[in-house]
Nucleic acid binder design. Structure first.
Lengths: 190, 190
DNA sequence: CGTCTGCTTGAATGATCATTCAAGAAACTA
DNA sequence: TAGTTTCTTGAATGATCATTCAAGCAGACG
């Protein structure tokens, strides 16, 4: 039972889980081997080193996010309504017991001054997300306003991602969102 | 030249600088000894361990922040104007070359699932800051509205603290702040 | 069948980690 | 002055870290 290359995506998924929870410096490669069931040799052959695996983890996480956002927008009656749903879901997530913020945001903060490559990668992925929102808002608002509003959405998402740890009522978050993003089609009384 | 207890605050200040930049797991006690000029024995006698020193670093940083906020409010014509100044200063800081977010925010994210004591401590300090804003807004808005608006301020501060890494024009940040906090007395054309 | 290639194995390596503690030196006590 | 207390010193410790690599195995190729 050798050969039979391991399932790469499954492995990266395990790495996402671990790194997301504990961060780059808070996760050891020994933990990675335990989480993935692989031996060091296999991991190092496939990903070169810890940074390589971390970057692929960031990449997979970000691409899933991008797909999820586009999917939600495609399903909804309008991009605005989809965005409301996405933000409300984030607020709901933030109230869960083991809330864990966002892998990209956490990485961006942790690696700001220590690993500029991974920091830049996370940054780039966050800007891709912003660009996706801008792209979907452009038909309705025109490019300039869409860009400004996408930036505003990202700004508010970051607010949720940190304020979520305060464990106050979700109403506080929802209210801040509705006040700060009044141009979104919020459901009444929500 | 022994005895003569070292300057505790100066030491903690060096620790703040190091921990703020590199985080808890990204900073070693060897780095601490280099940064403070103290030997391990002195540090461990005075702070018990790495966590103890880190907590005192958080405490000093937070107390300085609290004092700074109150001082700015006391100097200004109104709490609202002081808050505008504080937020504008944060935006300015975020555009600097070696922007480093906020020590409390970074700690809160890094230590969420690994060190619940330090995580809780950072959380508590952030809530103290929120309470200080609420306290200063209460005379003008009444307690309920002041609480809601203090929460909204914190929410926006977190947005700055993460979005700041994107290195876009400060106008984007300022615009998001003015849109999200329209009840603040923003200077015209700013 | 024999060889080659591609993947896995897992013990080993040297570096670095947080922390300890015996030894020593200044200041205070009496 | 002699003794005690308080603080500093810095080499040492064992754990854990990221990473390496010789050895072995399974399928592909001829």
């Amino acid at each position: 039972m050798t050969k039979a290359k391991f399932d790469r995506e499954e492995t990266i998924n395990s790495a996402v889980e671990l790194f997301w929870k504990n961060g780059f410096n808070g996760s050891s490669m020994q933990q990675v081997t335990k989480a993935t069931g692989l031996k060091p040799g296999s991991i190092y052959l496939a990903f070169e080193n810890k940074q390589g695996l971390y970057q692929e983890a960031l990449d997979l996480y970000a691409n899933k996010s991008l797909e999820g956002i586009q999917h939600q927008i495609d399903q909804a009656a309008s991009p605005g309504e989809a965005i409301c749903q996405i933000l409300q879901e984030m607020v709901r997530t933030a109230s869960e017991k083991n809330y864990n913020s966002c892998f990209l945001v956490k990485s961006q903060l942790e690696l700001a001054s220590e690993n500029s490559e991974l920091h830049a990668f996370a940054n780039q992925k966050l800007q891709q997300i912003e660009a996706l929102y801008a792209h979907n808002l452009t038909p309705e608002f025109g490019e300039d306003l869409a860009n400004a509003r996408a930036a505003s959405i990202m700004f508010h998402i970051f607010g949720i991602r940190v304020y979520g740890y305060h464990k106050k009522s979700p109403d506080v978050l929802l209210r801040a969102l509705q006040d700060g993003l009044p141009w979104l089609p919020w459901p009444d009384h929500a």
